[in-house]
Amino acid sequence: MILLDMLTIAAMAVGLFFLTVGVVGLLRFPDVYTRMHATTKCDTLGAASVLIGLGLYSGDLFTVAKMLLIIVFIFVANPTAAHAIAKAAYLSGEKPYEGTLEDAYGGDLR
C-alpha cells in the first residue's frame, strides 16, 4: 500500500501548507476583514485536505464517513462563522483600514 501512503502524505502536506498560509495571513494582513479572507479560505481547504489524507489512510468505512461528515460540516460552518464575525465587526464599529477603495456597506447603513 505504498501508493496509498504516498497519497496520504501528499494530501496532508498540501493541507499543512494551506493551514500555514492561513495563519501567516492572519498575522500579516492589515485589518480584520482581510485577515478573515486568509483564515476562512485556507483553513477550510487545509483542514479538509488533512482529513482527506487521514481518511485515505484509515481504510475503515465508518471512519471515512465520519471524516466526510466533519469535512462537510466545516465547509458549511466556516464561511457562516466568518459571515457572522464580519457583520458583527462592522456593526460594532470596526473600520476597514485606510487602503480600502470603496465602502458600499457603510454608505447604506447610514
Binding site: 501548507f17 494551506f18 498560509v21 485589518d31 479560505k41 476597514p96 470603496e102 456597506y105 457603510g106
Partner: peptide, 25 residues
C-alpha cells in the same frame, strides 16, 4: 475553492502584500 486558495496563498506570501480591498454591493 482550489483557485481561491492558490490566489490567497500568492497574496499572503508576496512580500509586497499587493491588496486593494473594497466593499461592494
Amino acid at each position: 475553492i482550489v483557485k481561491a486558495n492558490i490566489h490567497v496563498a500568492r497574496l499572503v506570501l508576496d512580500p509586497r502584500l499587493p491588496i486593494a480591498p473594497s466593499i461592494v454591493k
